[in-house]
Amino acid sequence: MNRTKTEGFGILTRELAQEIDKTINLYQSNSTKLVGILLDIQGIIPKQYIPREVAAYVSEKMNIPLSKIYDVISFYAALSDVPRADYVIQLCDSVVCKVTGNTTLRDTISQLLGIKEQESTPDGKYWLEYTPCFGACDISPAMRINGKVFGHLTSQDSVKAVFDQYR
């Protein structure tokens, strides 16, 4: 480990550090807003996750123990401590989408991406995860891509049509 060197930061560039500073300032460096701050910071990091050096940076800037930040990151499903991808694809795996038949959706996405859940494509473009209900039961089966909700995905064609928007 050589933590005193700055070259080893990788992801944490000077530009990103400035963006993080901006985010923290936007929330008045208020530690009670940690969850929102981390969500916003994750949103500006390529591959949508929070690496250790970024967590350590936030820890120092906000004077919150790193272990506490890690507890928060690891606890919430929307925060990730491992790299994901440019596009995070979340298939609803809840009981409603099961009942209405989401196997076509699951199979089609797996086929298109060639990956299983909690995996990213080799080019780092797509990450696939199954998530609990995100409240789109009225249009189920449903999925989210980078937070945007798509529903009525009962046929291969409907899934492909959505996916084509993210090629």
Partner: peptide, 12 residues
């Protein structure tokens, strides 16, 4: 112990 990250380079 050199346990701290040195972020000073980033915030110059």
């Amino acid at each position: 112990r050199g346990m701290k990250y040195n972020f000073s380079e980033l915030t110059k």
